[in-house]
């Protein structure tokens, strides 16, 4: 199980990874990257799916359903808008 200090290590290393990835990004990619990271936390849908799988009462099922619905919206929407933005970046050197 992920517990105690192991959890703390995971949190810390992941935080440094995020910090390092963004630290060297040119300003022109800030919007796509924000949108891209917005997509990545769409992984929350997976968590909501597990919650819904184990839901017993009607209340739990209703909240779980909303959670999956919102999470799926986050993931799908985040992906589409990011891809649309990145599609447009072209260099003049390639004659594109």
């Amino acid at each position: 199980m992920i517990d105690g200090f192991i959890a703390l290590y995971i949190f810390m290393l992941a935080a440094f990874t995020g910090y390092e990835i963004i630290g060297r990004v040119p300003v022109i990619l800030h919007t796509p990257l924000m949108s891209g990271s917005n997509f990545v936390h769409g992984i929350v849908m997976v968590g909501a799916m597990i919650v819904l799988a184990h839901a017993d009462t009607t209340l739990e099922k209703a909240i779980g359903f909303i959670g999956v619905l919102l999470g799926a919206g986050n993931a799908a929407g985040g992906y589409v808008v990011t891809e649309r933005m990145l599609e447009m970046f072209k260099s003049s050197k390639k004659g594109g």
Binding site: I21, I43, G47
Partner: peptide
């Protein structure tokens, strides 16, 4: 207890804070 959520969430949390 799901590492995918922890890692993805934390990466975005840190990157977003810096941004």
């Amino acid at each position: 207890q799901n590492p995918a959520l922890i890692i993805a969430g934390m990466v975005v949390g840190a990157a977003g804070t810096l941004l």
